[in-house]
Design a protein around this nucleic acid. Structure first.
Lengths: 337, 337
DNA sequence: TTGTATGCGTTATCAA
DNA sequence: TTGATAACGCATACAA
């Protein structure tokens, strides 16, 4: 049958305990024995058995902590759904899951949440605020033996061992491609979320690159909403009143509902709207033909993937081949729903 | 800790063996004991542990058989990729996987393939030919205790326990939605695969429903290619020469490359092409702006899902909640690649 | 009809 | 530094 620790022990003439110590680098093995066992395992093509590992892992009582900036943001509810779909499986393996949510992007709040359970967790999944304080904390956790996965937003140059999320630049390119497809001569207004958020800027860069590739479509105006619907409503009204040639709106992040309401108010239903995500109000507006296309970040899948990677890390002791696990931007129209 | 068979045995005052017999309906238990144990398991909220089950399953030496009509069809190569990504995991659990491929849709061939390993397999994943002979064979297998999953194409009213694949009707609707988005006044030629194939007809039905919903776009012509590129090339040439007002082509199934070459030959690059799948030639044509949109059936995911469901069926003894596991039609443009 | 013992592969603990 | 053994949860052959 298959190659097991027991088999390696027999073949190399040592005990199972010793093989275990060698293969898992637990030390307390003489160099000579270590050499022998390692060589033997390699020769026989040893592959650890997940079921066995999992069964044994029950005794470890792992806890994993999750911090999501989800309060008041329906997008992240879907991310949490994906996470929760794994809780039962985790329980089977004796892994406890603690989910903590927060509202907005206050650094102090996030730091406190981390510290509230950093002594009991073996892994952390977090939608991090991209700042020095949090970066340092992540690095500290890693050095204390806690694996960190960044979710939906990454934090560069940190010691997180994996990032799960979309390619924001590409998301912008895809939005650009879609708009050129709908109207190669589009006159575009861009509704930006926040210039302070890396992902938003990346989307705009990708979008511009795509739009400027051919002559035809042009960007006429751009403004910021801070992801607030009232702001986006007011500013869209103003834009459409003063620039009544604008026929296309690209919404980079939040504030989608506000834009749509402004369009409805002015009865400018000929305007083509392209946006991101599929929160309930967005789906409504898609069904009412106010939004033409939305680009999904597949939030449920993001949650699932993060949990999967964490599981492999804890139970199998495997890091993913790629540090970044990129979730595809998925184009959706009315008929998808 | 968690509720195990051992615990139930203790609480209900019987042996572990008896609990096992009750929970797995193996018989040879007095009604009174059975009642007692069942009640107890329910009360404690017993959930079988996967790792334990899996470890014990190794002794069973399951074999699962796979039959795919993939030869000469690159789409199915991706399906197989998805399947193969699970082989290693399966091996871990002592499950052997046998993949058999065939070319085209000969009933006799498919039947022979099934019979070649029906005595050794515990599960079958198949892209079935939708015909009485195969339906009966599937029913026979199920009655002999072999679970069958249909993949990519379903076979109605059979005893297969799950179908994994897309919703073809919806695929057609999405294609219609995309075309209306690109050009609300499109004059459309439909390139059909085969009227004999259920999925192809479903796509056309969905497409027509969508196109006829509003006035504007109209279907001008439709022809069949039997998924052959030469046929599609010739017939597209003919269509475009005789109907030079056609500005949009909807390709229902195969023959994509032939259509594109015809368009290139006549230098009619203004024609908008919408098709399915992402085989290499299709991606090429997308990059060259001949094809504007392709709708992916996510073949790799299809293969993976089928394997996942089969695994749960064999090892966990769980059938999926829904008989049909629908894979989403995914809209893709040049910028996705 | 019921109970007991053993093994699946890995890991932790204790003894040597 | 090494070895022996028990445990994780389930399934089953065999004994009672």
């Amino acid at each position: 049958m298959s190659v097991t620790i027991k088999k390696i022990a027999e073949v190399s003439g040592v005990s199972r305990g010793t093989v275990d110590r060698v293969l898992n680098n637990r030390g307390k093995v003489s160099p000579r024995t270590e050499q022998k066992v390692k060589e033997c395992a390699k020769r026989l093509g040893y592959k650890p058995n997940l079921a066995g590992k999992a069964l044994a892992a029950k005794k470890k009582n792992y806890v994993i902590g999750i911090i999501i900036s989800s309060e008041g943001n329906p997008f992240f509810n879907d991310v949490i759904k994906g996470i929760e779909s794994f809780i039962e499986t985790y329980e089977q393996y004796g892994i406890k899951v603690i989910i903590k949510t927060m509202k907005g992007y206050n650094i102090e709040t996030q730091l406190n949440l981390i510290e509230s359970f950093e002594n009991e967790i073996s892994g952390l999944i977090i939608t991090p605020i991209d700042t020095e304080t949090i970066r340092e904390k992540i690095n500290y956790l890693k050095d204390s033996g806690i694996g960190v996965i960044t979710l939906n937003t990454d934090i560069k140059n940190s010691k997180r061992f994996a990032y799960v999320g979309t390619d924001y630049y590409k998301g912008g390119q895809i939005a650009g491609g879609i708009i050129k497809l709908i109207n190669p001569l589009a006159l575009i207004g861009i509704v930006q979320g926040s210039n302070k958020i890396y992902g938003h800027n990346q989307r705009i860069l990708g979008f511009k690159e795509e739009i400027e590739k051919n002559t035809g479509a042009t960007i006429k105006e751009i403004f910021e909403t801070d992801d607030d619907d009232i702001t986006s409503y007011e500013k869209t009204l103003k834009m459409l009143k003063s620039n009544n040639f604008i026929d296309t709106i690209f919404i980079v992040a939040g504030g989608v509902y506000g834009v749509c309401r402004a369009i409805m108010k002015l009865n400018r239903k000929n305007i083509q709207v392209v946006c991101f995500d599929e929160v309930p109000t967005t789906i409504d507006m898609l069904k009412n033909d106010i939004i033409k296309v939305t680009i999904s970040q597949q939030p449920i899948l993001q949650g699932k993937k993060a949990m999967e990677i964490m599981f492999d890390y804890l139970v199998k002791g495997e890091k993913p081949q790629n540090e970044c696990y990129i979730i595809e931007n998925q184009i959706k129209i009315k008929q998808n729903f």
